[in-house]
Design a protein around this nucleic acid. Structure first.
Lengths: 350, 350
DNA sequence: GCGATTTTTGACAAGGTTGTCAATACAGGA
DNA sequence: TCCTGTATTGACAACCTTGTCAAAAATCGC
C-alpha cells in the first residue's frame, strides 16, 4: 500500500469539470439521452476518454432502480451446450456494460406453481436482475414461463419454444435442420432409419422428430415405431439406444440422434458391438458440440451457433428494456450449418 | 400491473420504526457489529423477519464500498474442469448471500504488466467485486498475481500454485497423486513409461511431472527423455503425443497423461494406430472429468473434487474478508481419489 | 424586432445504506 | 454523592448517480 500514487478513479464531477459542463449533462451523454448539443456531447466524450471514467454501478443501480445485471438460470448438468451459450451471454453482457449472474436451480421441474413463484420471487427480490435468461432444460417449461410472467420480469429464452408468453425467443430452425439431416441419410440410400428422441419435456425433442418425420414421409419412407427410441440427451442414453437397436432382428442402417452426446454413445455402442461406423451404421447428431470432433470417426451433425445464440439473446433482452416501445422482433432465428464428417456413408448392400 | 396490492418492499427505516430503534442500530444488527444490547438485537431481528426485509445491495455497495459480488476470471475455453469448479463456486455464493459474476478474459497471457493492471483496474472499478477467484490457466500466472496484489484486492486461487503472494490457495496434493498414478503403472510391471506434459506456464505441469519423476526414481527406473512429450491439456495435443510415441522405434508400454483430455486423445491415437488399450498400451489421466467415463475403455485417473474445490475457495475467500484478523489457513488441501478403470493392465511381454 | 414556443442546460433533491462523531446511559471508584 | 471512564445509541453526512423542474438559450411567427 505504500508509495501508492493515488490513481483515484475519476467521478462524474471530474468529467464535468474537465468538459466545462454540469454533472447532469455528463449523465445525459453517458445515457444517450437527447437534448445535448453535439459540441458538448463530444467534449464530454473526450473528457470521459481522457479520465478513463467508468460510472459506478452501485450508484446507478441505487438511483435508477436497475441493477445492470441479468440472471442466467442454470441447471446443474455440466454440458458443453449450456456452457457455450453462457460463454456468448457473458461476452454480450461485458460488451453492453451488464453483469451476468449465474443462478443455479436444481429440481425446478418437480415444484408446484406456487413453489416456483416463491423461488423466483426470492431470487428477484434479492438480486433485482433487470432480466432473466433461460435455456434448456428450463427454456421450454410452461410453469416456469407463467411464474416469471406473473412476476413481471423480462425474459429471453433460447431454443425451440412454443409458449403463449411475450418473452423473447432466440433459436435456430430445428425443424428445417432435422429435415436436412434426414435427407442426407436418405440421399445416401438409407431406408431403415432409426431416431433417438431427447427428453420428453423439451420441445426440441418434438420439433426435431417432426422434421425427421416430414423428410421420411416426403421420401415415401415409413417410420418403423420400433426404431424410435427414447433418450435423455446424454451419452449413456445414446449407448442404451444403440445397444437395443443393434440387437434387433432387423437393425437400422442409419440413426438420427437428437443430439451429439447421444450420437457419441451410439457410435460407442456400435463399435463395442463390432459394428463399424460408418460402414455398418451411419449416425448423425445435432449441435456440433465439443464431442463431435473428439470422437472417432468424427460426427456428421448440425452446427448450432451456440455462442451467437447466447450473445443475441442478451442483446435482444437488453434492447427490449431500453426501448420502451418493444417494437423489435420477439422471435429471432439464426442460421445453422450442416456439417459433413465421417459417421455417415452410403448404404452398402450386405 | 393493475390491482397490485402494493407489496412495497420494506426499507431499513421501516424495520427501525417497528423495532423502535434508530436506523443505525438496525444496520449494526444486520452487519453483526458489536455494541448492541441483546434485547434490542432480538427486537430488530424479529422486525426483519416480520417485514421480510432484505437490504438493498446497491445502497450497501455504494456506501460500504462492497458489492457482495465475487468475480470469477474465466478463460474462453469450454472445459469440463472449469465448468465444474464454477458450479461449486455458484453453489457456495448462493449459500452465503453473494453473487458470482463471470468475467471472460482472453489473451491475458500476452499482456504486459501495465496492461494487465489496467485491465484489472477497469474490471475492479466497474464491478467493485469484493474478491476475485482464479483457476487454470490464470491461477498460476505470476504477473496476474502481482497485478492483483498491487490493486489490493482479495484473491483465491485453485490448483497447484507457488506464488509469493498472500492469496488463499485451494488445491489437491497433485504431487502425491502423480506418485500414486505412476506407482500404479510400475506395480503393473511397466518400465518404459511415457509422460505427456501440459501447458508450460502452469505449475500443475511441473508438479505432476515432479511426482512422476519421484516415483520413477524411487523404483530405480530411469526416465527416457524421448518419452517426455509436450502437450497443452487438450484432446488434440494428446493425439499428437500418442502418434509420436507409438511411431518410436521402442515405444512405451504405458503413458501418464497430465490430464484426461490428453489421455482421451492418446487412447484415440492408439486405437487408430491399431494398438489396443490397455493390452498394448496402458494410459492414465488426471482430473476424472466427464470424458473419463465416456471414452472406451473408461479411463484410469485421479479424481479431483472439482465442485468442492470451487465451494471451498468461495467459502475461504468470503471468510477472509469477514474476519479482519485473517487467522485462518491460507492454504487448503482437499482429498483426491485414485480411480481404477480400464485403460491400465499388467505389462504383457510381447 | 418582440413575444411565444421549443430546445438545451444546470441546480438541487433523492435513493438506502454505512461511517463519524457526539450524546446518552451506565458502572465503578473516591 | 459526584466524577471518570466505558458501553451503547442515534443524528447527520456521505457515497455517486439520475429525475425533476426551473432557468437560460435558441428558434419561430408575425
Amino acid at each position: 500500500m505504500a508509495g501508492n500514487s493515488e490513481p483515484k478513479t475519476a467521478k462524474m464531477k471530474d468529467v464535468a469539470d474537465l468538459a466545462g459542463v454540469s454533472i447532469k449533462t455528463v449523465s445525459r451523454v453517458l445515457n444517450n439521452e437527447p437534448h445535448v448539443q453535439d459540441k458538448l456531447r463530444n467534449k464530454v466524450k473526450d473528457a470521459v476518454a481522457k479520465l478513463e471514467y467508468i460510472p459506478s454501478q452501485s450508484a446507478r443501480s441505487l438511483r435508477g432502480n436497475r441493477s445492470y445485471t441479468i440472471t442466467l438460470l442454470c441447471h446443474a448438468a455440466d454440458s458443453s451446450y449450456s456452457n457455450t451459450i453462457q460463454f456468448g451471454a457473458v461476452v454480450a453482457c461485458q460488451r453492453l456494460g451488464y453483469q451476468l449472474s449465474i443462478s443455479l436451480q436444481e429440481g425446478l421441474d418437480q415444484l408446484s406453481f406456487d413453489q416456483l413463484k416463491a423461488v423466483f420471487e426470492k431470487l428477484i427480490h434479492q438480486h433485482r436482475p433487470d432480466g432473466i435468461m433461460l435455456m434448456a432444460p428450463y427454456a421450454g417449461n410452461k410453469m416456469i414461463a407463467f411464474a416469471l410472467q406473473e412476476l413481471g420480469i423480462d425474459v429471453v429464452r433460447i431454443g425451440p419454444v412454443d409458449l403463449p408468453t411475450e418473452d423473447i425467443l432466440v433459436e435456430i430452425d430445428d425443424y428445417g435442420a432435422a429435415i436436412e439431416l434426414t435427407q442426407h441419410l436418405i440421399d445416401l440410400g438409407h431406408r431403415r432409419i432409426a431416431f433417438v428422441r431427447g427428453l420428453e419435456n423439451q420441445r426440441a425433442t418434438d420439433v426435431r422428430f417432426a422434421g425427421f418425420s416430414m423428410a421420411m414421409n416426403a421420401a415415401g419412407l415409413t417410420i418403423d415405431d420400433r426404431l424410435v427410441m427414447p433418450g435423455s440427451f446424454d451419452f449413456s442414453s445414446g449407448m442404451d439406444a444403440g445397444q437395443k437397436l443393434l440387437s434387433l432382428e432387423d437393425p437400422p442402417s442409419a440413426v438420427f440422434a437428437s443430439n451429439d452426446d447421444m450420437a457419441a454413445g451410439l457410435v460407442t455402442a456400435a463399435t463395442m458391438a463390432g459394428v463399424p461406423v460408418p460402414e455398418g451404421l451411419s449416425v448423425v447428431g445435432f449441435d456440433d458440440s465439443a464431442v463431435a470432433t473428439r470422437m472417432r470417426p468424427e460426427l456428421t451433425t448440425i452446427h448450432q451457433p451456440l455462442r451467437e445464440l447466447g450473445e443475441v439473446a442478451i442483446e435482444k433482452l437488453i434492447e427490449s428494456f431500453q426501448n420502451e416501445r418493444k417494437t423489435s422482433a420477439r422471435r429471432i432465428v439464426l442460421d445453422h450449418n450442416f456439417i459433413l464428417r465421417n459417421t455417415t456413408a452410403p448404404l452398402t448392400i450386405s
